[in-house]
C-alpha cells in the first residue's frame, strides 16, 4: 500500500504519460479489477477493456488543471470500473442481480458521464483523422501531436520553406475541422 506522497507522485507521472507510473498502477490494481469483473459475469477481455477505460478516466483527471484526488487510487479506479461495468452489463442486458462489493466506493457518476462524452469526441476525431488522407494526416500529426516546428516539418516533408508548409497545414486543418464539426453537429 502506498502512502499519500507516493500516490501523488504516481499521479503526477501518469499525467505526464510516464511508463513507470502506468506500470505501477497496473501492478497494484489490475489483479483486483480483473477478479471483480470475472466474478461478475465478465471475461478476461472485458476486464482489460474496463481497466483501460478507467485508466483513461484517471489520466484525464490527473492532467486537468483542477485536479484533486480525494480518495486512494485503488478506491477511485475500483469505483470507476464498477460504474463502467454496471453500465456495460445493463447495455448487454446481462445484469444478474447484485454486483458484489469488494471495496468501498466513491461517487464517480458525473465523471464517468463526462468520460463517455469525451470518448465519443475521441472517436469523432479519430474518424475525421482517418478521412483527411495523406499527407494531411502526417502533417497534422507532426505539428499537433509530435509538436515539431514548421522548419522541421518543411524539411521532413520536402517543402521548400516553412511558409509553404504552414499554408498546407492550414488547408489540412480546415479540412479536419470541417469533417470533425460535420459529425459533431450530427451527434449533438
Amino acid at each position: 500500500m502506498s502512502t499519500l506522497e507516493e500516490e501523488k507522485l504516481i499521479l503526477k507521472g501518469l499525467a505526464a504519460d510516464d511508463k513507470q507510473a502506468i506500470e505501477t498502477i497496473y501492478r497494484q490494481n489490475y489483479a483486483m479489477i480483473q477478479a471483480f469483473i470475472l466474478n461478475n459475469n465478465g471475461s478476461q477481455d472485458d476486464a482489460r477493456d474496463i481497466f483501460q477505460e478507467a485508466m483513461i478516466v484517471l489520466f484525464e483527471k490527473a492532467r486537468s488543471d483542477s485536479f484533486e484526488l480525494s480518495s486512494q487510487i485503488k478506491t477511485y479506479l475500483y469505483s470507476v470500473c464498477r460504474r463502467l461495468w454496471l453500465k456495460r452489463l445493463n447495455q448487454m442486458q446481462r445484469y444478474s442481480g447484485n454486483l458484489e462489493n469488494m471495496e468501498e466506493t466513491v461517487h464517480v457518476e458525473e465523471e464517468v458521464e463526462l468520460h463517455e462524452k469525451r470518448n465519443a469526441d475521441f472517436t469523432l476525431m479519430e474518424n475525421a483523422m482517418s478521412k483527411i488522407g495523406e499527407p494531411c494526416k502526417s502533417l497534422l500529426d507532426a505539428y499537433y501531436i509530435q509538436k515539431k516546428n514548421m522548419q522541421e516539418i518543411a524539411a521532413d516533408f520536402g517543402y521548400t520553406n516553412a511558409d509553404n508548409a504552414k499554408t498546407q497545414k492550414y488547408k489540412c486543418l480546415m479540412r479536419l475541422k470541417k469533417l470533425f464539426f460535420a459529425q459533431y453537429k450530427n451527434v449533438q
Binding site: 511508463k19 485508466m55 489520466f59 469525451r118 476525431m125
Partner: peptide, 21 residues
Amino acid sequence: FLNEVERYSAVKSFKHSMIEA
C-alpha cells in the same frame, strides 16, 4: 477545436503507453 486535438493526441499516446505496459 485545438483542445479536442490536444486531448485526442494525449489520449492516443497514453493508450499506446498502456498497451506497451
